[in-house]
Simulated scan of single mutants.
Amino acid sequence: MGAFDAIRPYDDAEVPAVLARLLADPAFLDTLTHFRFPRLAGALGWLLKPLIAYRLRREFADVHTVALLQDKLENYVDHSIEQATDGVTYAGLEHLRHGSAHLFLANHRDIVMDPAFVNYAVYHAGLPTPRVAIGDNLLQKPFVSDLMRLNKSFIVHRSISGRREKLAAYQLLSAYINHSIRDDAQSIWIAQAEGRAKDGDDRTDSAILKMFHMSRKQEPFAEVIQALRLTPVSISYEYDPCDLAKARELYIRASTGSYTKTPGEDDQSIALGITGYKGRVHVQFGTPIQQVPEDARQLALAVDQQILGNYRLFPVHYLAYAAWAEREPALPVPEAEQLFSTEELAKAKAQWQKRLDNCPAPHRPYLIGQYAMPVRNQYRVKAGLPL
């Protein structure tokens, strides 16, 4: 048994057996049936499930490597993007060195689509897709774990409660990330902080940066980080399909002091994040950090300068900022009318009003804050003000 077997993605030799297991899994087939035929799944599920399994077995019969699987999945990803976005743009790929692995550290708004859009950009640029960090809290069903690990995901154990067990889990995670980049020459995607930034405030957790160093503590912090080629990535959504649910959660937390997820809530967020309307999406790859400070907090600030500074602001962000009770009058933020055409702004105003109308009044300040926060952060970066 290998040192990383408990968390690593599946390798090529495992692909056929895992695919066969998936296509015989009743829970997986039931989920696919409800997703593909929501109105018929209840009454005709007994008929549809074997038909779906048969079709998938034929479609994936020649898939025996991870690369071939990703080639097959590309059509599904492209279709999803066409259906749920008004287009995806990406920039900064010239910063990536061909033949070198990178540690992509990204802001986190959507459970599945954040790494999917990074993969989309890298794949279409002809570069190898990264291995993707995913929390074990999202892998409650065995078929979900199989699906994710087939698609180059590795597991971050977040459900462990004991201090010693947590330390061992993060030590293993650190060793795996370093091994992937230094030995396997395979890039890594990981979020800048645990959990999605539901309030729109994209900040790097210095504990994540310290974790990268944990398995190589005998070496200087700056040298370890530099060897990983840490590259900040900004993922910008014009509209967040989960924005109303996030506003509700923030309201409940503010009102009661806590929030407890209902069973299946993560599954609903994943489905809505994949299928919900996002408007335009932009992925900006920053420059790999060369001058690495020895202090993790200073490094977090350097990462934030890029992630926040490179975030693509759409008209809705400026509309929200203008209505935000916490906006900062001293910041030189222009009006939306100064930046966007009349036609583009009219479309944004209609979509924004629709979202406001669908949001209960007590939740609206939290909805507005989600879209306004990136404006404040970016203009603070531009003005050289502390974040």
Rank of each mutant, 00 (worst) to 15 (best):
A41R: 08
R164I: 03
D243P: 04
A227K: 14
Y277F: 09
T204G: 03
Y379Q: 06
G309I: 05
K152M: 12
L172A: 11
A191T: 03
P220G: 11
E335P: 00
H98I: 08
A53H: 01
V77K: 02
P315F: 07
P9F: 03
A320Y: 08
A24C: 12
Q218K: 15
P374N: 08
A175Y: 00
N358G: 12
T231P: 10
Y10R: 04
P9V: 04
S174K: 05
R312I: 03
G99I: 04
F221P: 06
D266Q: 01
A330P: 00
P386M: 09
K217I: 13
A336M: 04
L29F: 08
A300P: 04
L93M: 15
P374K: 12
E59L: 13
A6Y: 06
D266N: 06
N107S: 09
P26I: 06
E326G: 01
S215V: 11
E14N: 02
Y277C: 04
L139R: 00
W46R: 14
Q218W: 06
Q218E: 14
K166T: 07
Q83H: 14
L299I: 11
F285Y: 07
G264L: 07
D86E: 15
F221C: 05
H98Q: 14
A20R: 14
L19R: 07
V18Y: 02
R312D: 00
Q186H: 10
L69M: 10
E94S: 13
G162L: 01
Q378L: 09
A6R: 13
V66A: 15
L138H: 13
Y10C: 02
E326M: 13
G286E: 10
G87F: 11
R39T: 03
Q226F: 04
H98F: 02
A372I: 09
Q353F: 08
Q290W: 01
Y10Q: 02
F212K: 06
D295R: 12
H108L: 07
Y371F: 13
H102Y: 14
A61C: 05
G87V: 11
L228C: 09
A175C: 09
D201W: 02
E238H: 08
E74Q: 12
I188Q: 00
G257K: 09
T85F: 12
L138P: 01
Q291M: 10
T287P: 02
W46Y: 10
I81E: 11
E94T: 12
Y379G: 00
A197C: 10
P293H: 10
A383P: 05
E14V: 03
P329I: 05
D12N: 14
S100H: 15
A67F: 00
L150E: 03
D304F: 10
Y90N: 12
L308H: 12
R163C: 01
V233L: 02
A330C: 00
C242D: 02
H98N: 11
H317R: 10
I52Q: 02
Q353V: 01
L147N: 10
E337G: 01
I7V: 08
T31Y: 14
H95Y: 13
D12G: 05
I270E: 05
Q70H: 15
L47S: 06
T342P: 12
L51W: 04
G309K: 13
G264Q: 03
P263Q: 08
